[in-house]
């Protein structure tokens, strides 16, 4: 089954290991027919579509869990929400068979909502068109192994802003590449954009809103492939 759950604001600091442990215990409490791995120390067969960095909340995170028996999507949804704290509530369950693509492998893009407030918010929001008009946006991409200058323009698929004058607040929607060779972190995107705009908002809140695969070149939520 694929669980779509939120990583709420109050639990945004959970790292992957904490989240894994929490989900495993919740699954054990759920009473659902959970599959265990074979071997010396059996564990629950489950995998997250993507680890969400500590500090960032998410609206529609995905967890794939193996089941051993028939059940219904509704039963799973009810069972999981009974055993999870509200901050990790499940919003959707889809039962899929083994032929369904592995979430991690099918993941192509991620969508973020980035809320800017105060300071240079207006300037940053206003700079987006110019920013995207560039042929090339070079930025230093850091991975565990290396630091390389890459052209991140190719990794930005959508970037729009809605600016609210009265609140001095801008809500950006960003859809970016999320594959092993070319993942654009929202922090890096914002760093480049702010540098381009020559302005810095006072506050910047990032939240992941969707994990997407591609069907015929079009983005589709991973749970709907």
């Amino acid at each position: 089954m694929i669980l779509q759950f939120q990583k709420g604001d109050i639990v945004r600091h959970l790292g992957l290991l904490d989240l894994q442990r929490t989900m495993q215990r919740a699954l054990r409490r759920s009473g659902l027919p959970i599959a265990y791995s074979k071997g010396f120390s059996p564990h629950i067969v489950m995998s997250f579509a993507s680890a969400l960095s500590s500090g960032i909340p998410g609206d529609a995170e995905l967890l794939d869990v193996g089941l051993t028996d028939e059940t219904t999507e509704e039963a799973c949804l009810t069972a999981m929400n009974r055993v999870l704290p509200p901050s990790l509530a499940v919003s959707r369950v889809r039962l899929v068979d083994d032929r369904y693509p592995k979430l991690g492998a099918a993941l192509q893009q991620a969508q973020y909502r980035i809320t800017l407030r105060g300071g240079g918010t207006k300037a940053v929001a206003g700079a987006i068109d110019g920013f995207l008009a560039q042929q090339e946006i070079m930025a230093l991409r850091k991975t565990k192994k290396s630091e390389t200058m890459v052209n991140i323009r190719l990794m930005i698929h959508e970037l729009t802003a809605a600016y609210d004058e009265t609140q001095d607040c801008a809500v950006l929607t960003a859809r970016v590449s999320f594959v092993e060779a070319a993942t654009l972190k929202p922090e890096l995107l914002m760093e480049s954009l702010c540098a381009f705009a020559g302005a810095q908002p006072e506050r910047c809140e990032i939240r992941r809103t969707a994990l997407l695969g591609l069907v015929d070149g079009k983005p589709v939520p991973l749970i709907d492939l």
Partner: peptide
């Protein structure tokens, strides 16, 4: 408080909201 949690080690120490808390 929320703002402080972004700036400390192991913010889960101060988070609350665990399963079964009253």
């Amino acid at each position: 408080i929320d703002g402080l949690l972004d700036r400390v080690q192991k913010p889960a120490r101060y988070m609350g909201g665990e399963m079964n808390c009253v």
